[in-house]
């Protein structure tokens, strides 16, 4: 008689670090050196992390206008630089890194996030997500300079299947929804949010709004949300930091300050996602109903795509 298949294997609990940075505008090399120093801190002051997340535009600053063309890099080059920053700071400790950067893909420019596996002196690009929703209103001017991504993919990490959304991507409920339907258990959100709203209780109203969005994503889909926020002022616009880990119940596991650089340490326990989904099976319900919603002829879908 064959032994029973082991269906109760305990999923791995992993450590995540979010590095909330304040880059010097346009000083790519200097910012990478600073990040490398922080990487050193990550492995010396506590258990080395399985996954490290940096904000949107972490190595250049966010508001670049035309200088984005000076600073955007091919994904392979950025991957090599970021991997080297890890190895210079943290040595041989294997890790998976996520960071926002401006991407130059043969003369087409994107606001991108990279997911990178580093270890044993090598690195591998796991995925590059190109921001799909480029804010171009008010203080924002992304689509003037950048092209938008056309695809939302999920990918495997050592802590489970994940997806990356960049800043405004996550404000459209359909984005984390599609990621979750594709199997994501972790939504990683590099962000750069210029704060506003001073009438609130103790924090800017834009920070409160962000937290509501993040908690709603986590609770609706039973996913972990890792939010990495840029911090510091850029030409009078103050980035709101507040990097956080939200658990699959929608609870804030840990959150950093709004002002100032910091490391936010949290953990991902895949069993929490299972329990949250069993308790509130919204994703299962969605999977059942989604075809009816998507195939609705009243939706403005191009003919032939339905």
């Amino acid at each position: 008689m064959e032994p029973p298949v082991n269906v109760t294997e305990t999923p791995r609990v992993g450590n995540v670090c979010i590095v909330q940075v304040q880059p010097a505008k346009g000083r790519y090399t200097e910012n990478l050196e600073s990040i490398s120093e922080t990487f050193s801190q990550l492995v010396t002051e506590s258990t080395p992390p399985d996954m490290v997340v940096l904000p949107e535009a972490a190595t250049t600053g966010y508001f670049l206008e035309g200088a984005v063309y000076d600073l955007a890099l091919p994904a392979q080059r950025f991957a090599a630089d970021l991997a080297r920053a890890w190895e210079d700071g943290a040595g041989d400790s294997p890790v998976e890194l996520c960071s926002g950067f401006f991407e130059n893909d043969g003369g087409t420019y994107y606001n991108s996030a990279i997911y990178l596996r580093v270890g044993g002196g090598k690195h591998e690009i796991v995925h590059v997500h190109r921001k799909m929703f480029l804010p171009t209103y008010g203080v924002f001017d992304e689509e003037r300079f950048l092209s938008r991504g056309r695809h939302l993919s999920v990918f495997e990490t050592r802590l489970g299947r994940a997806a990356m959304l960049i800043c405004e991507d996550s404000w459209h409920a359909i984005m984390p929804t599609i990621a979750a339907v594709k199997g994501a258990r972790i939504i990683i959100i590099p962000s750069a949010s210029p704060g506003r709203g001073i009438e609130g209780d103790g924090e800017l109203t834009s920070i409160t709004r962000w937290r509501e969005v993040l908690r709603a994503i986590a609770a609706e889909h039973g996913v972990y949300v890792l939010y990495a926020g840029l911090t510091g002022f850029e030409g009078g616009k103050g980035m709101t930091g507040s990097s956080s880990v939200i658990d699959p119940w929608g609870r804030v596991q840990v959150e950093g300050p709004d002002i100032g650089e910091c490391v936010v340490r949290g953990f991902i326990d895949p069993r929490e996602g299972d329990l949250a989904r069993a308790s509130l099976p919204l994703l299962g319900d969605l999977n059942a109903v989604l075809p009816d919603l998507i195939l609705d002829e009243e939706l403005p879908l191009p003919k032939g795509r339905q």
Partner: peptide, 24 residues
């Protein structure tokens, strides 16, 4: 008319001045 949380605005404006003068 418009409201303001004095403590909150002060915290952000102090950070603004430090960043714009000292850091930058």
């Amino acid at each position: 008319g418009p409201r303001i949380n004095g403590e909150l605005a002060t915290r952000w404006l102090v950070a603004f001045l430090r960043d714009e003068l000292i850091a930058r």
